[in-house]
Design a protein around this nucleic acid. Sequence first.
DNA 1: GTGCCTATCTTGCATTACAATGTACACGCT
DNA 2: AGCGTGTACATTGTAATGCAAGATAGGCAC
Lengths: 110, 110
Amino acid sequence: MIPSQMLKGILSGCVLAVISQRETYGYEISQKLGEYGLGSVSEGTIYPLLLRLEKSGFISALYRESASGPMRKYYSLTPAGRLELEGFISSYGELSRAVERLLNEMEAVK
Amino acid sequence: MIPSQMLKGILSGCVLAVISQRETYGYEISQKLGEYGLGSVSEGTIYPLLLRLEKSGFISALYRESASGPMRKYYSLTPAGRLELEGFISSYGELSRAVERLLNEMEAVK
DNA sequence: GTGCCTATCTTGCATTACAATGTACACGCT
DNA sequence: AGCGTGTACATTGTAATGCAAGATAGGCAC
């Protein structure tokens, strides 16, 4: 299980990455993140996050009808969102390399 | 630059990892984390974190004198701390693999 | 004595994941 | 008709935690 605190700051970038693949909506994003192994991201997490990203100008929304259930709110990346995603990838890489170094060195000591 | 939110939940595990290598104190931990590339972790971050870890029983403290400056508070891992560190490594691995999968698939689409 | 490096601690703030709850549509079952 | 289930979005309140800012204090160089 991935602790919720560990997802902070990672999740928004992951959502941007999912949306970058193709236009999609909250409910589907939540399921996809689960498939990737990020744990079941609850609705109380995903919808506020999407609203934050929209308000920040990183994604734009469009309501479309659904065959099964209520209207879906489809999101797609804006140019600013694409930049933000690149920034996330870069930052995550930096973090990832740092932790990797640390854990490797620890193994060496052990 | 690694955004502060991205460190949440990662930092405590990293601090445990540093302490696991050998007994050390807050000021030195802060510098070490910087060397590993985790950005400069400020004092307002590291000291409350160490107190939390101590209160949780993951580390134990011991004051020692210093040749240059005031007393140092040396920390070492407790058995519970070692377990916690192993849990962190496992969780981080899970997170890391998930994000890796996601970003790779994204690259494939692009 | 003034300034700098070392060293620890506290207060208050901002961000954000999440549970709980409410709303609403479509479909199948009884 | 009434009920449950799955789909779909949103809001409210809580908890965790990184960090800036500031206080305290010792040792050393100028």
